[in-house]
Design a protein around this nucleic acid. Structure first.
Length: 202
DNA sequence: CTAAAGATGTCCT
DNA sequence: GGACATCTTTAGA
């Protein structure tokens, strides 16, 4: 029996959620809540845009050519954060997928801020809420995510995790092609909430 | 060891 | 629409 008052909205998604097909996880992450705990502070945002990156069958993936020091977490246990540094100044946040030993990750491209907005504003120095997390490197900046969280267990409920929203809303999911890549650019592995103003620009 | 590209953001015209 | 900042990672000599 499900009593709504007993639902802990901030409980992290279980590992079984991540231990599945990467494309499917990418799609189902839309509408979930990204939670960052900074001491007493809590930053939250609804995930509105994701991209799936797989392994040997995906030339755009970091895991395409096999494991390296950077991408090793993609090959590890599902439900961990994969954070990498790029363009000499930006971090990108992914969550690992697929059973242990099989590479896969979902890039969190955009989020709709719902809690800790003042803190995000000061971190980002932006005027509009829309600009806080409407891009992969903007998400990491707003949510204070960096290399220190690479490999972090998202089921631990500490520091960083993803949870079910307390008030789920139906959303129209749209499929598109991934952004900012050359190889594998034709694969329809980008998912976003149609009409949501917090999605990154196209 | 060296070189080249990169799952981007911001500011400029 | 385009330049540019800035440096890690990876591949190849």
């Amino acid at each position: 029996m499900q009593d709504s008052l007993s639902i802990n909205a901030s409980a992290p998604l279980p590992r079984t959620f991540y231990e599945r097909n990467t494309v499917r996880v990418a799609k189902e992450l839309l509408g979930k809540v990204l939670v960052r705990r900074l001491g007493p502070m809590r930053l939250e945002g609804i995930i509105v845009e994701t991209e799936a990156y797989r392994g040997r069958d995906d030339a755009a993936s970091h895991a395409y050519r096999g494991p390296t020091k950077r991408n090793q977490v993609m090959f590890g246990e599902p439900g961990h954060a994969y954070v990498y540094f790029t363009y000499g100044m930006h971090y990108c946040l992914n969550v690992t997928t697929e059973p242990t030993g099989q590479p896969g990750a979902v890039l969190i491209r955009a989020a709709q801020p719902i809690k800790g907005i003042a803190e995000m504003m000061s971190r980002r120095r932006m005027r509009h809420v829309k600009d806080l997390a409407n891009g992969p490197a903007k998400v990491t900046q707003a949510f204070a995510v960096n290399k220190a969280l690479d490999g972090h267990d998202l089921t631990s409920g500490r520091k960083l995790y993803v949870a079910e929203p307390s008030h789920p809303e139906p959303c129209n999911i749209t499929i598109g092609t991934r952004i900012g890549i050359k190889a594998g650019a034709e694969k329809p592995w980008r998912f976003f909430v149609r009409g949501n103003p917090f999605v990154s620009k196209r």
